[in-house]
Design a protein around this nucleic acid. Structure first.
Length: 276
DNA sequence: CTTTACGCCTGACGGC
DNA sequence: TGCCGTCAGGCGTAAA
């Protein structure tokens, strides 16, 4: 699925179509997403989009509220296989097109998600106070994120560092692909206990996380299976992946065969000689 | 507190 | 051709 770069790419594509426009209607064809789409989302009808932003892998569409009314908006998550694209309001829905935000300009934002792990939620009150967002760690591309922070939070932890950096309470947005990539770039073995990594190596890891995520955003994200951006086009970062899904192929640094290992029920890829 | 396993879904693929 | 098992980019929840 969409990890942080894919969500960010989607946001950037949608924003010009949404900002300042009114949502005329919300069309729900299948409410059975990860959580049932709540009827409150229909309150979006007739409201203007005041702001589009991303927190972790959540897309936040903030709507204008009437005077004296609480702030409100929509929260969208793409799950494992979700995508949002701009369509003409009259386009025939395809399989797995579960909902539309119909805009005032003849376009709509259409959500497609074969596996239905995604979500559309309504929020009233500040978005960042929402239960799903409240406990999240820092954004990896912000100044709140650093190797020092990782080192502190890892103190005493015995679990694998790969699971540690994929824990959204530590740092958000690092999914299965970019976790493997960043650990390779930093030369750290994915199974190494998080509490047994030096401050210097955590600095390298934080830098690698920033670097891989920002490069992936520049390439429009990684398309391995489902991901498409808001214009229905794939991202191109897959061709820059160093270890992910390269089991048995030679390491680009040393030539050793890349290995795959299941850590925390997820496939992890690493170079047994470059990563310690 | 940390850590682990599971399940929500569909679809693609490989083996028989 | 079909059937079955496995796997897939997330993440909340329960339980250890």
């Amino acid at each position: 699925m969409p990890e942080l770069p894919e969500v960010e790419t989607t946001l950037r594509g949608l924003e010009p179509h949404l900002l300042g426009h009114s949502i005329n209607d919300v069309v729900v064809r299948n409410a059975a997403l990860r959580w049932p789409i709540p009827p409150e989302v229909f309150q979006a009808s007739g409201r203007t989009v005041a702001r589009c932003r991303r927190r972790a892998k959540y897309l936040l569409i903030d709507l204008d509220a009437q005077t004296g009314e609480k702030r409100c908006g929509l929260i969208i998550h793409l799950g494992m296989s979700g995508s949002l694209r701009i369509c003409s309001a009259g386009d025939t829905p395809r399989k797995h097109d579960h909902f539309d935000l119909v805009l005032d300009n003849g376009h709509c934002v259409r959500f497609n998600d074969p596996r239905r792990f995604g979500a559309l939620l309504w929020r009233s009150g500040p978005a960042l106070n929402h239960q799903l967002l409240r406990e999240l760690g820092p954004e990896p591309l912000s100044n709140d994120f650093s190797g020092e922070l990782l080192r502190q939070r890892a103190r005493g932890r015995k679990g694998a560092v790969k699971n540690f950096i994929m824990d959204g309470r530590i740092v958000v947005g690092v999914g299965n692909i970019y976790a493997s990539e960043a650990l390779f770039m930093a030369g750290i073995h994915p199974s190494r206990p998080a509490g047994r990594i030096s401050a210097a190596r955590y600095d390298a890891l934080a830098a690698a996380i920033r670097d891989v995520l920002s490069r992936a955003i520049r390439s429009g994200g990684t398309t391995l299976r489902d991901y498409l951006n808001s214009a229905g086009k794939p991202g191109y970062f897959a061709q820059e992946l160093l270890v992910y899904e390269r089991e048995g192929k030679p390491c680009f640094q040393c030539g050793a065969a890349i290995r795959r290992k299941v850590i925390g029920q997820r496939s992890s890829y690493y170079c047994p000689s470059c990563q310690r």
